[in-house]
């Protein structure tokens, strides 16, 4: 069975794709592993398990998961509004969604800090209620939510556009309530895209440095993100230690991403069964 494909030469295309990925992704990553392999186990363990570093994993991964979850909920809402409701200025709003991609992260960080600090436009009202946002872990979540928004919107949007109205009408005509139509018909169709968007937003948030650094406050044990730990190790010319922490971050990220993918496959199987 030979199928004709658009790209000539399956072997060549695959070979090139693997080479390209290897050059762009695998090579730099393996360099990190090799660099950290230079240190003994004891040193490695000490570098990655110091209390300060452990606290930073908790903040980085916790805030990234929370931000991705917030984005999943509100990103879905934004995508829904953009696809389903025609309103004046929709194209403009649509374009706005991509801005967090285009904005240099440092600019985003400074702008968010200005807004959410105790004397900022938004922060002053929270400060009056006794809630501090900038320079606390809460500020980290705000920054990560900002940079992750486009991922969910842009992955869900095309799927939602392709979802035919007729399906919803059929569900309604079969006696489904609006809630049932959403949870049993629309949501299962969107779930894979939503999970992809969540995963991308999460992965991006874990590695984010530029925007977070301005709003975090960077207090050891409280508001230090793991990328800052890496930067401070580099600052001390401790390259092995920095790559050791990076390796741990990569491994945790990979495990989390694999788990999310597995969940996605499992839910798809269950839905089709």
């Amino acid at each position: 069975m030979r199928r004709t494909t658009i790209l000539p030469g399956f072997g060549l295309a695959l070979g090139f794709a693997l080479f390209y990925l290897g050059l762009l992704v695998l090579l730099p990553l393996s360099a990190a592993f090799i660099k950290s392999a230079g240190m003994g186990w004891a040193d490695f363990w000490q570098a990655v398990s110091a209390p300060r570093v452990l606290a930073s994993y908790k903040l980085s991964f916790g805030a990234a998961l929370l931000a991705a979850a917030i984005n999943a909920v509100f990103g879905l809402l934004v995508a829904w509004v953009l696809v389903r409701y025609p309103f004046p200025g929709r194209r403009f709003v649509d374009a706005l969604v991509d801005l967090p991609f285009a904005l240099p992260t440092a600019v985003a960080g400074i702008a968010l800090t200005a807004l959410y600090s105790s004397n900022g436009w938004i922060g002053q009202y929270f400060a009056a209620a006794g809630i501090k946002i900038a320079f606390t872990p809460l500020g980290v979540v705000v920054a990560l939510t900002f940079i992750g928004l486009p991922f969910v919107v842009r992955t869900v949007q095309p799927v939602l556009e392709d979802l035919e109205h007729a399906v919803e009408e059929a569900a309604a005509s079969l006696g489904a309530s609006r809630l049932q139509t959403f949870t049993r018909v629309i949501f299962p169709a969107l779930l894979p895209a939503l999970a992809t968007g969540f995963t991308m937003a999460f992965a991006r948030a874990v590695g984010e440095y530029g925007s977070v650094i301005f709003i975090a406050g960077n207090i050891p044990m409280v508001s230090e993100i793991t990328p800052l730990i890496i930067i401070s190790k580099l600052e001390q010319y401790d390259y092995a230690g920095a790559t050791a922490v990076a390796v741990v971050m990569l491994v945790i990220s990979l495990l989390l991403l694999l788990t999310i993918n597995a969940l996605q496959i499992w839910s798809r199987r269950r839905a089709s069964a």
């Binding site: 200005a114 105790s118 004397n119 900038a134 320079f135 301005f214 406050g217 960077n218 207090i219 050891p220």
Partner: peptide, 21 residues
């Protein structure tokens, strides 16, 4: 007594001057 440890010197200046911290 330090509520914010900015990563760089200029960022600390911004925190003190602009953020009023």
């Amino acid at each position: 007594n330090v509520p914010v440890l900015d990563a760089g010197g200029r960022a600390a200046t911004t925190t003190f001057i602009q953020r009023g911290i």
